[in-house]
């Protein structure tokens, strides 16, 4: 017996990119990059769990809408050019 997809019961399907989740709101510590000290090692980009860092000419640009402030970039940076600063209530 051949059945079509129309016979399958209704199933919830996700159809929206997760970019609607502003996970940057969770952040307690904010990464601050001193671009002058950056040696373009790209380790911050490589180890960001949330893919919230893009490279612009080899240097990091952190998307604060999604950065959760874990601090892995600051911990791994060879040039120590990223520091974590506590977020303050606005």
């Amino acid at each position: 017996m051949s059945r079509s997809y129309e016979d399958i019961p209704l199933t919830p399907i996700s159809d929206t990119p997760s970019t609607m989740n502003m996970t940057g709101l969770w952040r307690v510590f904010r990464p601050v990059v001193d671009l002058d000290k950056c040696k373009k090692c790209t380790l911050c980009w490589k180890f960001c769990p949330d893919a919230a860092i893009v490279l612009v000419d080899g240097k990091p640009k952190i998307d604060l809408r999604y950065c959760k402030g874990c601090g892995i970039c600051a911990n791994e940076c060879l040039a120590e050019c990223i520091i974590m600063v506590k977020e303050e209530a606005e």
Binding site: P17, S18, T19, M20, N21, M22, T23, W26, R27, F47, P49, D50, A51, A52, D63, R65, Y66, K68, G69, C70, G71, I72
Partner: peptide
Amino acid sequence: EHAYPGSTGCPGCGANL
């Protein structure tokens, strides 16, 4: 990248990596 940012994993999650 084959994933968007905005996943609901904890900050610093190894499983995301």
